[in-house]
Nucleic acid binder design. Sequence first.
DNA 1: GCCGTTTTCGGCCCGACTGTTTTCAGTCG
Length: 580
Amino acid sequence: MTNQEIAAVFEQVADLLEYQSANPFRVRAYRNGAKKIGELAEPLAAIHGDAARRLTELEGIGKDLAEKIATLLATGTLPMLVELQAQIPAGVLTLSRVPGVGPKKAAALHKELGISSLAELRAACEEQRVRGLKGFGAKTEETILKGLAVAEEAGVRMRWADAERVVDALLEHMRGEPAIKQLEIAGSFRRGRETIGDLDLLVDATDVPAAMDRFGAFPQVQETLARGDTKMTVRLASGLQVDLRVVPAESFGAALQYFTGSKDHNVIVRGRAKQQGLKVSDWGVFRIEAAEGESKETYIAGRTEEEVYAAVGLPWFPPEMREAREEFNWAAAGALPTLVTLEDIRGDLHMHTTASDGQDSIEAMVAAARARGLSYVAITDHSKRVSMARGLDGDRLRRQWREVDQVNRQSDDVEVLKGIECDILEKGGMDLPDDVLAEADWVIASVHYGQNQSRQQITERILEALENPHVDMLAHPTGRLINRREPYDVDLDRVMAAAVKHRKLLELNANPARLDLNDVYCAAAKRLGIPIVINTDAHHTDGMDVMRFGVLQARRGGLTAANVANTRPFAEFRQLIGGE
DNA sequence: GCCGTTTTCGGCCCGACTGTTTTCAGTCG
């Protein structure tokens, strides 16, 4: 078993224990263990197999978890998990994927109403049977109905970053087969969509059965759903479906173009081809010639995507652009934007330290930024309203800034801005007084509380914050968490208009669960000339590695380096935010 | 269930707010 699979088992145990109202610290121990194992670079099997070492040397792994890991490595199953699963009806746990429904509410729904699936829960809410239960009311019922959409989506679509882990493992596995000459993942994964429904793997191989055998032998495969001459479909243990298509070399580019999509993009490409007497399919580009009542097709392109697009008079489009939005207009004008890349990024303007809920010191974060080639950062811990994260009041913040000054003096290659992630309070207004904010180099305004307020209320709060002359940027502008929480009901058009008027910046938060602003609003910000800042919101040094997810989202929004403020050299960035 | 140690068990980060309830579950980073 791989580390990821073992981590998944412990996560499942934690979920089931939580459902049974087990000791919360015991639940946490399993979750913590799963997290540690998931982040481990070295295979557990290697540590376990080394007589000189013990699994308990890993932080968070004690005698008990070490034994369970050994059992999993030896047998592939865990009796404790099997036992727990026998006690808890399948499906009940999926109920707690609904925001507002935790293990306790899920248990009550099952026990009182016999509900064990999202569909049954929806029906019960619609029939207003839920509001009668103890601890539930009409409002809860409404919340559940709203949350059901999130939960149902989460069941079928995986976040891009999670899919990437599967993709990396799958590609590495497939490269072990010498008959495979070319290998690409197509589909929405290649286009960089926020969430992925399934994976499409495209292969050019000299020996089709060998490629398919290799595919079927991927360790995460649970079941082979279909296997034909050119196509094979499997389902992984995680539930993700993966399609394999084997194509000849002369069709590889055409198939890659075809299966990358999007469908809407391809409809336009094929329409253009038709007008020119051509046909584009997943096998290639063909010229159609009518001769004596019969039509003849001649292959003219298909080895590479460039060849396919060129054959129909189009430039090669970066996959992130292929959504039938602006790309054909850009092509017609002869000017596809050069999309921003990770290498363009020079600064990271949103991160936390041990002063609030981060795990590393200012020095450590600056060193991590240096190691990633950045030339400036902002230290932006939480303000006092975020009490759970030990948010800073004015006094503690000023003390921290003195520390930042000191770090700045010792760092000649990374500039450190004195910043704050200041909460926008529920009743309106900023969480810190103006005289404190006035001393900051960089002020982020954020909504963390009162996310369920009305559109009017929440929009007004944000507009008021944007009017504050000390505020530089609005962080994660809609607060959504992919597959977990809907965006708050904010009028982004008004927010954007205010950002233009008051010359504020908007964040694209690179955390793979946030990625907010999303692609569509990034494109809108670009049209309005609002600079976007792509930030990691790192809570530890490794957290800075998520920058590339933000860049991918920005690319989907059609952003160039010029549209992204933190691609600028420090002096220019400083000028943009009104510093000296 | 882990950790640390004071070697046998107590602490584990935590406090305000909402909705619904009358004592608590869920949520926020």
